[in-house]
Amino acid sequence: MLEVAKLRCERDDRVLFSNLSIQLSPGELLQIEGCNGAGKTTLLRVLAGLSGDYRGQVIWRGQKLSRVYADFRLSTFYFGHKPAVKTELTPVENILWRSSLRNESYSEQSVFSALEHVNLAGYEDIPCGQLSAGQHRRVALADLSLSTTPLWILDEPFTAIDVDGVAWLEQRLAQHISEGGAVVMTSHQSLSKLSDRVRKLRLEAFSAVDEETGHEESEAWL
């Protein structure tokens, strides 16, 4: 589905990762770990097509990403570390504009039930400015849970989410994978329910290790 070949990324003369190769197939979850500043968010932004400042190749369904952006964007849900929730709008309005941008349309009924699943029942008509940071993320997660896009790119989806929410999200991720979707996410959370389906990629300072192959995929540095 999504393939990365010999990816190399530098920021401010610092090499974040190099010679990084990933293959993601339907039904897989790739969890990217690494300390702060290791380049997790940068990698996700490259994968989502937000950043073009890299060397190497990102391939979507067999073709170079830059050639098939429209198809790629129709098939992708990006959850950034800022939740993209407008504080002046209600949760329902937020979900509707977000989905409209992704060319998806949900019925009002399904939006209400998704908000109920993320414990926001009763908050549907309250401007998000009156909700907490965790609730903002829950609004975005409700949008995620409705999305039918096959590839989910999630940047720290568990941040500011309570224990119940974490369990719910894990269960939703499991469902997405079992339906043939794929997930790339950064998180330090150990996904207990999904342990057999998770592949882990550890970004370390100046190197990347794919734990499945155990290969140290890094070059020598001066």
């Binding site: 992708t76 990006y78 800022k82 504080t87 992704r102």
Partner: peptide
């Protein structure tokens, strides 16, 4: 830009000039 909506705009399958 501040609340992350700009990323959603940039990642939309619709032509960005239209948005």
């Amino acid at each position: 830009q501040e609340d992350g909506s700009l990323d959603q705009l940039l990642l939309s399958p619709h032509p960005l000039p239209l948005l």
